[in-house]
Every structure is written in structure tokens, then in C-alpha cells.
């Protein structure tokens, strides 16, 4: 087991490396570089013109006169050794000051959506499989399909509209106005959770729907397996047997798809957060991209990817813990 964990950690390294390279490429993809953007910004804000000499100086200062691979190495060593992600142009602050809290928020949102999905999908999936072709099963299947068909942002918009129109309140944001700038306290956490449930539902709907379908299909497969008959011939009650054998087996592919779901959640959180104006990484990234704030954008993409890589690691470990076959191979 220890060896397995170690191996998984080692496997992460090339992935992380590749993630950082892709992020760096995205930083450099748009025409122009950081200094161009900086100059354009200064010109727009103060009308001040930058002389070509100054421009060269700025490039030198930000190491932008170096070839790209060198820049990459500079950037990545800065991150690894000093936690220095570079400067955000628009906020005029170091990226790391901006990103950590947002990232934590993204993580909290994704994780709670995940829990929401589990809590809702497992019982419904089990019910659907055990009572195949019942009214409840058809209902779950139908609702599941609808859940899959509505894009996250559309669901968010509809909820916004409904709450605005019929309850006359705004559901945007993760905090009530009085808590936004308040220091962390229990009350603020409580406030966070009271706001969290709408994005959680929005974000979780598609995942819940697909999970219900996966679980139902898996469980239907497992219910026909010989070991279920064996368990029955041992005289176990039906409910116990269901939980101990087929459900446990059906959860395996479920756990391995956990990672995909988590990736999708992190991914989906980006857009939902923009619509619902939540203080997660999403809007930050979006703004950064629109303003060509490339260090911020690149770092945000990279850190989101790191988050999902960690999620993968977690689901792999969970799977190994659950399934002795993986542990022993």
C-alpha cells in the first residue's frame, strides 16, 4: 500500500510539470507580452508614454528579453521555491495574494457540490436499480436526463430570475454584504453556507444526474452477478446483502469516476461563479483573461489544474483503499 501511494505521488510529477507548461503556453499565447499590456495600461490610465529605452528596461526587469524556455524556468522556479507567481497587472499585487483565498473558495464549493451529489445520487440510484421499471425509476431517469440537459449557467440564470422575480432577492455572491470584508468568524462561515447551497445545487445537478444513471447501470449489472446469489443462499436479508455486495461493487467504478466528476465540478464552478458572481477563481480568471493579465490567468489555470490533479490522486487512493485488487496488483 505504501508503495502504491508512493507510486501515485511519483506519477503526479510529470502531470504537474505538463500542467505548468500548458499554463505557461496560455500565458504567452495572445499577441503581445506583459510589458505591452503594461504600457497600454499606463497609456490608457495616465496618458503617459513609454520610451523605447524604458520599454527595453522594463523587459529586462521582468526577464522578458530572455528566450521563452528560460522565462518558463524562471517562472516555475519562482513558484516552487518562493511561492512567487508573478505580478497581477490589473490588481497591481502579487498573484499569490489574490489567488489562495479564491482557490480555497473554489475548493470548498467543488467539495460541497461533490457531497451534495453523493448524498442525493446514491439513494436515488439504488432505488432506481432495485425497483427497475417502477414509476420512481422512470421519474428518476427523466429528471436525471433533464438535469443533464440544462447547462450550468442556464440553471443559474433561471434560479437568479426566479428568486429575483418571485422572492425579490438577489442570490448572487457567497456572502451577505455585511460579511464580505469582515474577518473570518463562525458567523461568516454560517453565512457562507447559507449562500453556498444555490451554487451547490446548480453545480451539482448535472453531476447528480449522470451519477444516478451510472450507479443504476452498474448496480443492475452487479445484481445479476453470481456472488449475489451466493450471498442469498447464505440466508442474508435482502437489504444487508444489497449494501454489502452489489452496492459496494457498484461503487468502484463510481469512485474511479469521482475524479472526472471533480474535474467537471472545478471546471463548471468557473462559469457558475461568473454568473452568480461568487468570489472563486472563476471570475478572477475570466477578468484576467479579458484584461490580458497573463500571470494571474496562467497561475489561475495552473492552480485549478493542480487542484484536479490532487483530486485524481485522492480518488485513486480511495479506490485502492476500497478495492483490494488494486492494492495487491
Amino acid at each position: 500500500m505504501v508503495q502504491y501511494i508512493l507510486k501515485r505521488f511519483l506519477y503526479m510529477i510529470p502531470t504537474l510539470l505538463a500542467v505548468s507548461i500548458v499554463s505557461f503556453i496560455i500565458i504567452n499565447l495572445p499577441p503581445g507580452d506583459f510589458v505591452d499590456a503594461l504600457i497600454a495600461q499606463r497609456r490608457a490610465e495616465s496618458g503617459e508614454n513609454v520610451t523605447p529605452e524604458e520599454e527595453v528596461g522594463l523587459r529586462k526587469f521582468y526577464h522578458l528579453d530572455q528566450p521563452l524556455p528560460v522565462q518558463y524556468v524562471d517562472w516555475i522556479t519562482g513558484i516552487i521555491l518562493e511561492g512567487d507567481f508573478g505580478m497581477s497587472l490589473r490588481w497591481n499585487r502579487p498573484v499569490d495574494q489574490l489567488i489562495w483565498e479564491r482557490l480555497a473558495m473554489t475548493f470548498a464549493l467543488s467539495l460541497s457540490s461533490m457531497l451534495f451529489i453523493w448524498v442525493v445520487a446514491i439513494p436515488i440510484g439504488v432505488y432506481s436499480a432495485v425497483n427497475q421499471y417502477s414509476i420512481g425509476d422512470y421519474l428518476a431517469t427523466f429528471v436525471g436526463f433533464i438535469g443533464l440537459a440544462i447547462p450550468n449557467f442556464l440553471l443559474a440564470l433561471v434560479l437568479l430570475y426566479i428568486s429575483f422575480r418571485f422572492f425579490d432577492q438577489s442570490v448572487g455572491g457567497l456572502f451577505s454584504p455585511e460579511y464580505i470584508d469582515a474577518p473570518w468568524s463562525l458567523a461568516k462561515v454560517a453565512d457562507l453556507f447559507s449562500h453556498m447551497w444555490i451554487p451547490m445545487v446548480v453545480l451539482g445537478t448535472a453531476g447528480t444526474a449522470s451519477l444516478i444513471r451510472t450507479l443504476r447501470a452498474n448496480l443492475l449489472d452487479e445484481l445479476r452477478r453470481p456472488y449475489v446469489t451466493t450471498a442469498r443462499t447464505k440466508g442474508l436479508p435482502e437489504y444487508w446483502l444489497l449494501i454489502k455486495y452489489p452496492l459496494r461493487h457498484a461503487l468502484n467504478p463510481f469512485v474511479s469516476s469521482l475524479n472526472d466528476i471533480f474535474v467537471n465540478l472545478v471546471s463548471g464552478a468557473t462559469i457558475v461563479s461568473i454568473v452568480l458572481s461568487l468570489q472563486t477563481t472563476g471570475p478572477l480568471l475570466f477578468d484576467a483573461l479579458r484584461n490580458q493579465d497573463m500571470y494571474l490567468a496562467g497561475s489561475a489555470i495552473m492552480m485549478l489544474s493542480v487542484l484536479t490533479v490532487l483530486g485524481t490522486l485522492f480518488s485513486d487512493l480511495l479506490l485502492a483503499w476500497l478495492d483490494p485488487r488494486i492494492r495487491f496488483s
Binding site: V22, V263, N264, S267, L285, F286, A300, I301, S305, T308
Partner: peptide, 10 residues
């Protein structure tokens, strides 16, 4: 393993 929407947005 890369979240698709941020990548697409980027």
C-alpha cells in the same frame, strides 16, 4: 485531468 472550461476560456 485539466479542468476543461478554464482551459477553453484560456
Amino acid at each position: 485531468s485539466i479542468p476543461s472550461i478554464p482551459l477553453w476560456i484560456g
